[in-house]
Amino acid sequence: MQPLRSPYNPIHIPLGLVLWSIWFVALYGGLSVGCALAPPDPAQGQWTWLNGLLALFSLLTMVAMLGLAWLFQRAARDQREGQPARFVARLSAGVNLIGAIATVFVALPTLSLPPCL
């Protein structure tokens, strides 16, 4: 069995989407808590501190996932590893890439809608 930190450990296959799920919960939870504690004035439209914070957080998450995707992709090119191991690394890279795309896609509305209405 590969050590936990190895990019070939199959436990990492879903990593990108696990991160996406955590990000998603944090996004929805952050919005709800923000609206409960200090709702921005609806007249401000979408340009509020809350939207800004959520967008920034999403951007950082996306960058992290792209970085992970790159790491896994690099590992997948290593010819010394067996076929199954490289399959796993490529799969993990793909999942991270999808996670990054999904993050951008889902976060897009923060740029166009007021937060608490």
Partner: peptide
Amino acid sequence: LLLFGIPIGHRMLPLP
């Protein structure tokens, strides 16, 4: 779809 849909949703909001 989102490009068309979100503005319509926006206009439905009870904004001031």
